[in-house]
């Protein structure tokens, strides 16, 4: 098969050889680099830089029209609407209270979800790294939810938690009273965290598992000969050597948690009230879903959220470099 493909590949390389040499002579080494980077940069520019520029333009415009030329320039009015608050800790005092409700909901969600997610992923990775029966099977079981579409994840859990869902059916069968889980603010919030952890933990466990398997066994054997307790070995050997992977997991989980939307939107719709309405849902509802769309405010909110994500990414890079220097 390789020999069959080698002939046309060689012919192709031969065909391009002369023009490439000519181009290198004209443009020099730098020109060649630019030549090879150009397609990627064009795609990046078209699908990242241009939309980002459009987002900024929308954030500075007002009105209900969707086309930019039909929208009026309003300067920072959209940002002012979002950021005007008597007390930023109390959304009720803010001009756009729904934005700040979404911000604080997101902060609460990120705080809890990332801690639980990293903990679950770590425990899963440690178990899967141990000598257990059918290890391959269990790895597949924990990774399976990652393969599911977020909408499917939301629907599965909705069928379990809704008033006439599986959980209440089981409870009634056991002689207990059914509970309206998804209309209770605390339960709805906890379930939104729970299903998000269930859906993503497998992915992060895999990253940690790769890190665990890269730790040389002889270090543990030496520690065992010194009668080091398993807890101490975890603290003194596993954690420090796993740190680069752990850092990647924490930052990725943070960024993903800030962007949470689809599975929670399907499960709770942002309710009860607005108790599970997170920032991405606010942007979606304001820009697209509501009968009265406000693309300018939605764009401004997405830029603010983008700013937070940039800060998180820079923090990750800074932490990684700092760790490398240690």
């Amino acid at each position: 098969m390789g020999a069959v493909l080698a002939a046309p590949a060689g012919l192709l390389a031969h065909l391009f050889d002369a023009p490439m040499r000519l181009w290198q002579r004209i443009a020099g080494r730098g020109g060649m680099i630019a030549f090879f980077l150009a397609p990627n940069m064009a795609i990046f520019g078209l699908f990242v830089i241009v939309p980002l520029g459009l987002n900024v333009a929308y954030a500075l415009s007002g009105g209900t029209a969707l086309f930019l030329p039909q929208r009026s320039y309003v300067g920072a009015a959209n940002f002012e609407r979002l950021l005007t608050c008597g007390d930023h800790m109390d959304p009720a005092t803010c001009r756009d209270d729904l934005f700040w409700i979404a911000v604080w909901n997101t902060v609460r969600f990120v705080g809890l979800q990332v801690v639980v997610l990293v903990g679950v992923a770590m425990v899963t990775a440690l178990i899967l790294n141990g000598k257990i029966r059918a290890r391959g099977f269990w790895r597949a079981v924990f990774f399976f939810p990652v393969l599911l579409s977020p909408v499917v994840v939301g629907l599965i859990w909705k069928w379990i938690f809704q008033r006439q869902g599986l959980l209440n059916w089981v409870m009634v069968e056991l002689g207990m009273d059914p509970v309206n889980w998804l209309t209770d603010r605390t339960w709805a919030f906890l379930f939104s965290v729970g299903i998000s952890v269930w859906a993503h933990a497998g992915f992060y466990a895999l990253i940690l598992l790769a890190g665990l398997q890269a730790i040389p066994r002889d270090i543990y054997e030496a520690a065992e000969m010194d009668r080091t307790s398993p807890g101490r070995a975890f603290r003194r050997i596993t954690l420090p050597l796993l740190w680069p992977n752990l850092l990647v997991v924490i930052v990725l989980a943070l960024i993903r948690a800030v962007q949470v939307f689809d599975e929670v939107y399907v499960l709770t719709g942002g309710g009860p009230g607005t108790s599970t309405m997170y920032l991405t849902q606010y942007i979606y509802e304001t820009g697209f879903a509501s009968s009265l769309r406000n693309p300018g405010v939605a764009a401004a909110a997405s830029l603010l959220m983008g700013g937070v994500l940039v800060v998180l990414t820079i923090a990750q890079l800074g932490l990684t470099r700092w760790r490398d220097r240690q």
Binding site: T183, G269, G271, S291
Partner: peptide, 24 residues
């Protein structure tokens, strides 16, 4: 019926027809 009104945020539309059809 709380589910219909409280199960969404914002101005999202939710119909309650299925609850009537299922004699709830």
């Amino acid at each position: 019926l709380k589910d219909v009104w409280v199960s969404a945020a914002g101005a999202s539309y939710r119909a309650a027809a299925e609850d009537f059809i299922n004699a709830q």
